[in-house]
């Protein structure tokens, strides 16, 4: 549990950070809260020669709601997300999710940027961001570009981010209607056995006007369930349509056998958790 040798850098602006990353190349890793990277370094599964710490860049810590767009800096901590009253109004599902991540000590340090950028299928924020249809802001040597969360994740720890880019922020439309983030975990601090993010909007005639469903830790990437979401909009939210949507989503999952249980159990848990999330979100819509 002793990391290898590395140099530590603390740039004070995004251009300086991007410049450092360009100069140091493959030997460097960007560090945000460090909750994924530092354990990997202690296990020597990651041995970067340089760490570029974003903590001194104040502009990356901001949370703002302008019109109907929410923007969150990559260095906002889970605790910042929980404490933000603006966010609690504009996207209460973010707070509900952040409260289910680990414990207060972890949430004071862990950041949203680190959570989404690392590509760890166990993290909760990636599926939530897909559910919110968020865009990730990437800064690289060639400037800034945006990539939709729904197109960002390629495989476990592999994302659309180029090696020389830094994920600096996230934006998504403020959400309306009902929401739920349901997570089954063995204990505080654990990754999800199964988790589901659901957003549902109820029209005046009680039909479902908008739906978004995404799943955590049930494949090697977060899963956005387009077909399941569409089904609820097309069929309305009934017991039968919920079952159909759940079945559709289950068709996408590829859980693996681990200490949380065998595949068969995880499929069952995913079914139960997603059903509860949809019912809960619809009850709040």
């Amino acid at each position: 549990m002793i990391p290898g040798r590395f140099e530590y850098h603390q740039p004070d602006s995004v251009p300086a950070a991007v410049g450092l990353l360009s100069d140091l190349g493959d030997e460097a890793r960007v560090i945000a809260g460090g909750h994924s990277l530092i354990p990997m370094m202690k296990l020597r599964l990651a041995m970067p020669e340089h760490l570029i710490d974003l903590r001194a860049i104040d502009s990356l810590k901001q949370i703002s709601v302008a019109g109907s767009t929410v923007t969150i800096g990559a260095m906002a901590t889970q605790s910042d997300l929980i404490d933000s009253t603006e966010l609690a109004t504009a996207a209460p599902i973010v707070r509900e999710t952040a409260l289910q991540i680990a414990d207060p000590q972890v949430r004071y340090v862990g950041t949203i940027g680190g959570n989404v950028a690392n590509g760890d299928p166990g993290n909760d924020m990636p599926a939530l961001m897909q559910c919110l249809n968020a865009s990730f802001h990437l800064h690289g040597p060639d400037g800034e570009r945006q990539v939709p969360a729904r197109e960002f994740y390629e495989a476990a720890y592999f994302t659309a981010r180029d090696d020389l880019e830094i994920l600096t922020g996230i934006s998504f439309p403020a959400c309306e209607g009902g929401y739920a983030y349901e997570k089954q975990k063995r204990k505080i601090g654990d990754y999800a056995t199964a988790a589901a993010a659901v957003l549902l909007s109820k029209a005046a005639d009680s039909s479902c006007s908008q739906a978004a469903i995404a799943l955590t830790n049930l494949a090697d990437t977060p899963l956005y369930c387009q077909e399941a979401s569409d089904h609820l909009v097309q069929s309305g939210v009934t017991d039968a349509s919920i079952d159909a949507a759940v079945q559709s989503a289950l068709g996408q999952i590829e859980p693996v056998d681990d200490n949380r249980g065998p595949v068969e159990f995880k499929k069952h848990a995913a079914k139960v958790i997603l059903k509860r999330a949809i019912e809960n979100a619809w009850a709040r819509a």
């Binding site: 063995r186 056995t193 249980g261 159990f265 069952h268």
Partner: peptide
């Protein structure tokens, strides 16, 4: 733990 309890229930036909 969760999965073993689930399996007990499953083996008893409770699902």
């Amino acid at each position: 733990d969760h999965w073993r309890i689930w399996k007990t229930a499953n083996d008893l036909g409770l699902h």
